[in-house]
Amino acid sequence: MDPSSLHPDLSFQFARSGGAGGQNVNKVATKAELRFSVRDSGLLTDEQRTQLLEKLANKLTNEGELVLTHQTERTQLANKEKVIRKFDRLIAKAFEIQKPRKASKPSKAAVAERLDQKKRRADIKSARRKVDE
Protein backbone atom coordinates (compact mmCIF):
# COMPACT_ATOMS: atom_id res chain seq x y z
CA MET A 1 0.00 0.00 0.00
CA ASP A 2 1.36 3.38 -0.97
CA PRO A 3 0.47 5.77 1.89
CA SER A 4 0.56 8.79 -0.40
CA SER A 5 -2.33 7.38 -2.46
CA LEU A 6 -4.76 7.36 0.47
CA HIS A 7 -8.06 9.17 0.56
CA PRO A 8 -7.98 12.99 0.61
CA ASP A 9 -9.85 12.95 3.96
CA LEU A 10 -6.59 11.86 5.55
CA SER A 11 -3.87 14.45 5.93
CA PHE A 12 -0.35 13.95 7.21
CA GLN A 13 2.10 16.28 8.89
CA PHE A 14 5.63 15.57 9.99
CA ALA A 15 7.62 17.02 12.86
CA ARG A 16 10.75 16.29 14.82
CA SER A 17 10.26 13.48 17.30
CA GLY A 18 10.46 14.34 20.97
CA GLY A 19 12.58 12.68 23.63
CA ALA A 20 16.19 11.65 23.75
CA GLY A 21 17.94 10.91 20.51
CA GLY A 22 21.20 10.81 18.69
CA GLN A 23 22.73 12.83 15.91
CA ASN A 24 19.64 12.42 13.74
CA VAL A 25 16.97 13.66 16.13
CA ASN A 26 17.43 17.43 15.73
CA LYS A 27 17.65 17.36 11.95
CA VAL A 28 15.02 14.99 10.63
CA ALA A 29 11.23 15.32 10.90
CA THR A 30 10.21 11.68 11.30
CA LYS A 31 7.22 11.97 13.67
CA ALA A 32 4.08 11.25 11.64
CA GLU A 33 0.76 12.87 12.51
CA LEU A 34 -2.43 11.69 10.81
CA ARG A 35 -5.53 13.89 10.81
CA PHE A 36 -9.00 12.67 9.89
CA SER A 37 -12.03 14.94 10.09
CA VAL A 38 -14.91 12.75 11.19
CA ARG A 39 -17.46 15.57 10.82
CA ASP A 40 -16.40 16.57 7.28
CA SER A 41 -15.55 13.15 5.85
CA GLY A 42 -17.14 12.22 2.55
CA LEU A 43 -16.41 8.55 3.21
CA LEU A 44 -18.89 8.13 6.05
CA THR A 45 -22.65 7.83 6.12
CA ASP A 46 -24.54 9.92 8.69
CA GLU A 47 -25.02 6.81 10.82
CA GLN A 48 -21.30 5.96 10.73
CA ARG A 49 -20.37 9.56 11.47
CA THR A 50 -22.64 9.60 14.53
CA GLN A 51 -21.24 6.28 15.70
CA LEU A 52 -17.63 7.48 15.39
CA LEU A 53 -18.34 10.83 17.07
CA GLU A 54 -19.90 8.92 19.96
CA LYS A 55 -17.33 6.15 20.36
CA LEU A 56 -14.21 8.26 19.76
CA ALA A 57 -15.43 11.35 21.64
CA ASN A 58 -12.45 11.40 24.01
CA LYS A 59 -9.98 11.14 21.11
CA LEU A 60 -11.44 13.92 18.94
CA THR A 61 -10.60 17.62 18.91
CA ASN A 62 -13.33 20.24 19.39
CA GLU A 63 -13.64 20.42 15.59
CA GLY A 64 -14.40 16.68 15.37
CA GLU A 65 -10.95 15.79 14.06
CA LEU A 66 -9.14 12.58 14.98
CA VAL A 67 -5.40 13.17 15.44
CA LEU A 68 -3.03 10.19 15.74
CA THR A 69 0.76 10.29 15.95
CA HIS A 70 3.59 7.79 15.79
CA GLN A 71 7.26 8.55 16.34
CA THR A 72 9.14 5.42 17.38
CA GLU A 73 10.60 4.56 13.99
CA ARG A 74 13.62 6.21 12.37
CA THR A 75 11.99 7.06 9.04
CA GLN A 76 8.97 9.09 7.98
CA LEU A 77 7.64 6.26 5.87
CA ALA A 78 7.80 3.69 8.69
CA ASN A 79 6.06 6.07 11.11
CA LYS A 80 3.46 6.90 8.46
CA GLU A 81 2.70 3.21 7.89
CA LYS A 82 2.45 2.58 11.65
CA VAL A 83 0.07 5.51 12.19
CA ILE A 84 -2.10 4.25 9.30
CA ARG A 85 -2.27 0.80 10.94
CA LYS A 86 -3.16 2.45 14.24
CA PHE A 87 -5.93 4.40 12.45
CA ASP A 88 -7.28 1.24 10.76
CA ARG A 89 -7.43 -0.66 14.07
CA LEU A 90 -9.11 2.24 15.86
CA ILE A 91 -11.80 2.68 13.19
CA ALA A 92 -12.43 -1.08 12.97
CA LYS A 93 -12.80 -1.30 16.75
CA ALA A 94 -15.20 1.67 16.78
CA PHE A 95 -17.44 -0.07 14.24
CA GLU A 96 -17.49 -3.41 16.11
CA ILE A 97 -20.93 -4.25 17.44
CA GLN A 98 -20.93 -5.47 21.01
CA LYS A 99 -23.14 -8.37 21.92
CA PRO A 100 -25.85 -7.27 24.33
CA ARG A 101 -25.36 -8.66 27.81
CA LYS A 102 -27.93 -11.25 28.85
CA ALA A 103 -29.09 -10.83 32.41
CA SER A 104 -28.64 -14.02 34.40
CA LYS A 105 -29.95 -15.29 37.71
CA PRO A 106 -28.05 -17.39 40.22
CA SER A 107 -29.13 -21.03 40.28
CA LYS A 108 -31.33 -22.35 43.08
CA ALA A 109 -28.39 -24.39 44.37
CA ALA A 110 -26.17 -21.27 44.49
CA VAL A 111 -28.85 -19.32 46.40
CA ALA A 112 -29.31 -22.20 48.84
CA GLU A 113 -25.53 -22.49 49.36
CA ARG A 114 -25.20 -18.76 50.04
CA LEU A 115 -28.03 -18.83 52.59
CA ASP A 116 -26.53 -21.93 54.23
CA GLN A 117 -23.14 -20.19 54.55
CA LYS A 118 -24.82 -17.12 56.04
CA LYS A 119 -26.60 -19.32 58.58
CA ARG A 120 -23.34 -21.08 59.55
CA ARG A 121 -21.54 -17.75 59.92
CA ALA A 122 -24.39 -16.36 62.06
CA ASP A 123 -24.23 -19.44 64.31
CA ILE A 124 -20.45 -19.00 64.77
CA LYS A 125 -20.88 -15.34 65.70
CA SER A 126 -23.79 -15.97 68.05
CA ALA A 127 -21.69 -18.59 69.86
CA ARG A 128 -19.20 -15.84 70.77
CA ARG A 129 -21.80 -13.87 72.75
CA LYS A 130 -22.12 -14.01 76.49
CA VAL A 131 -24.64 -16.47 77.79
CA ASP A 132 -27.40 -14.87 79.83
CA GLU A 133 -28.16 -16.61 83.08
Rank of each mutant, 00 (worst) to 15 (best):
M1L: 12
P3C: 02
S5R: 08
L6F: 03
P8E: 00
S11E: 04
A15H: 09
A15I: 04
G18P: 00
G18H: 03
G19E: 10
A20H: 10
N24G: 11
N26S: 00
K27H: 15
V28W: 01
A29V: 12
T30C: 08
K31L: 05
S37I: 13
S37T: 15
S37C: 14
S37Y: 09
R39P: 06
D40P: 05
D40S: 11
G42A: 07
L43K: 09
L44S: 04
E47G: 09
L53S: 15
L53F: 10
L53I: 08
E54A: 15
E54Y: 12
K55M: 05
N58V: 08
N58S: 14
E65P: 03
V67Y: 01
L68V: 13
L68P: 00
T69H: 07
Q71F: 03
T72W: 04
E73V: 02
R74W: 04
T75V: 12
Q76I: 14
K82D: 00
I84M: 11
R85P: 02
D88E: 08
R89L: 08
R89S: 14
L90A: 06
E96S: 10
E96L: 12
I97T: 14
Q98N: 06
Q98A: 12
K99F: 12
P100Q: 09
K102D: 13
S104I: 07
K105L: 14
S107E: 03
S107Y: 06
V111M: 04
E113Q: 14
L115V: 11
Q117G: 04
K118G: 11
K119P: 00
R120L: 15
A122V: 11
I124E: 13
I124N: 06
S126G: 05
R128P: 01
R129N: 10
R129K: 11
R129P: 02
K130I: 09
K130Y: 03
D132K: 09
E133T: 10
